[in-house]
Simulated scan of single mutants.
Amino acid sequence: MSGTISIVNNNPTLGSFDVVISNVKAPNGVETVSVPIWSEINGQDDIIWYKATRQADGSYRVTIKATDHKNSLGNYRADAYIVDDSNKRFYITEKVVEVTQTRPSASLVIENNADLGTFDAVIRNIVAPNGVMEVLVPSWSLVNRQDDLVWHKASHQSDGCYRVTIKTSEHKNSLGNYRADVYIVDNANQRHYVTETIVDVKHNKPVGAISVVNNNKDTGTFDVIISDVYSSKGVRTVQVPIWSEKDGQDDIRWYEATRQANGTYTVNVQATSHKNSIGLYNIHLYYILNDGSRVGVGGTTTTVEFRNAKTKTQTYITNVNSEAGSFYSSS
């Protein structure tokens, strides 16, 4: 049993190479040619036994990709075995090949970090030999390690860069140093680490998002939901003063919002509590902080209808029979 092993098409862009076994001599015939291959990193933890394909010229060939071997680079070992027609395996020869691959690269810059508890991670100058399927930016605060880790998917911009906005509200409202990494997923669905940075995130202004839901035109009711509640001093109470535009603030009412299990705060508002007024309602948001101070956070408006309040029922009494003590009513 004999044969010659050679390496061709060693492609540093793709991290791949071909193993060719030629001049195969087997007195008992050749059933298959097997090529076990592994990188020399961490022993044989990535070994794969390949079945080589017979070519028209009588040689046998198999293509090896680093992506199938844990993306390991450096020296690979390729052995050749012949299984003859009696199903006996014979070792023939071996070869060591150095595998290199051009890794994706890019630059990462931080923009719009303006003490508002948010910042943008911008990825530019991308070089990706196997293309770009998506760009991922895992980020976390350095407080309590990675307990607030979030994998963000960056959006492709018209100028070719990728951008994602990181919010402290998505990271337990932690402040201080954040780490942002960049990974490129190529068109072969392989994920590559590219770079990282540290950014100091500050948040001086209390924030909160106000939304109006369940605005019922028949009952004149609506719900106010306050989310992303945050202040660096801590929030003791969420207050929501509400009044109708009609006649100034003669129907103003200060509501204390109720905290929900998901961290939002809610208020239920009824027109009956505001002199049955309809039309535009003003909704403001205040926090009582842990130091006892009150700060305004924001506001919004909504339009209220109360159809049931406009519906009146009139009852008519006819056919009164005073002797029989009867009458007929209709509405």
Rank of each mutant, 00 (worst) to 15 (best):
V24R: 01
L175P: 00
K167N: 13
L116H: 06
T102Q: 11
G29E: 09
N215W: 05
I278T: 15
S322N: 14
V20Y: 04
Y286V: 05
E40Q: 06
K217M: 01
N216T: 03
P241C: 03
V150Q: 14
A324M: 06
I278A: 12
L73H: 05
P104M: 10
W151R: 13
V127P: 08
N262R: 02
K153P: 07
K172N: 14
V235D: 08
E323Q: 14
Y255M: 00
V182I: 15
H284V: 07
H171G: 08
E323T: 15
S277V: 07
V213R: 13
A128D: 11
S72M: 12
I225K: 13
D200V: 02
V30D: 00
T195Q: 00
T264N: 04
S105L: 05
D46L: 01
V96E: 12
Y162V: 07
L285P: 04
L289A: 08
N308G: 00
P138I: 00
V224P: 03
G292D: 12
K51S: 12
T197S: 03
G248I: 00
G43T: 03
S169L: 11
R124N: 11
Y255H: 08
Y193M: 12
G131K: 04
R253G: 02
Y50I: 00
N28D: 12
Y265D: 05
A324P: 04
V20W: 08
L14N: 12
R145A: 13
V199Q: 04
G263P: 03
I226E: 06
L108Q: 07
N187T: 11
T4Y: 02
Q270M: 09
I5R: 03
T67Q: 13
D291P: 02
K312I: 05
T301K: 15
N130F: 10
D186H: 04
Q314M: 08
D115T: 09
I166S: 14
S231P: 00
A180T: 15
N113Y: 00
G208K: 06
Y281N: 09
E94W: 14
A188L: 13
G176M: 02
V201F: 00
S331A: 06
D84M: 07
I252V: 11
E40A: 10
I210M: 04
N125G: 07
E111Q: 15
G298I: 03
N113V: 03
G160Q: 08
H152D: 13
V304G: 00
T313P: 01
S22N: 15
F17I: 02
E323C: 11
E245W: 11
A52I: 01
R77C: 09
V297M: 03
F17P: 05
V295C: 03
D181E: 13
V127Y: 09
D120F: 00
K312S: 10
Q314N: 11
D18Q: 10
N187K: 14
I317R: 15
F222G: 09
P104H: 10
D57T: 04
G117A: 09
N290L: 13
E245R: 09
Q190C: 04
S72R: 15
R103C: 06
V164K: 00
H274D: 09
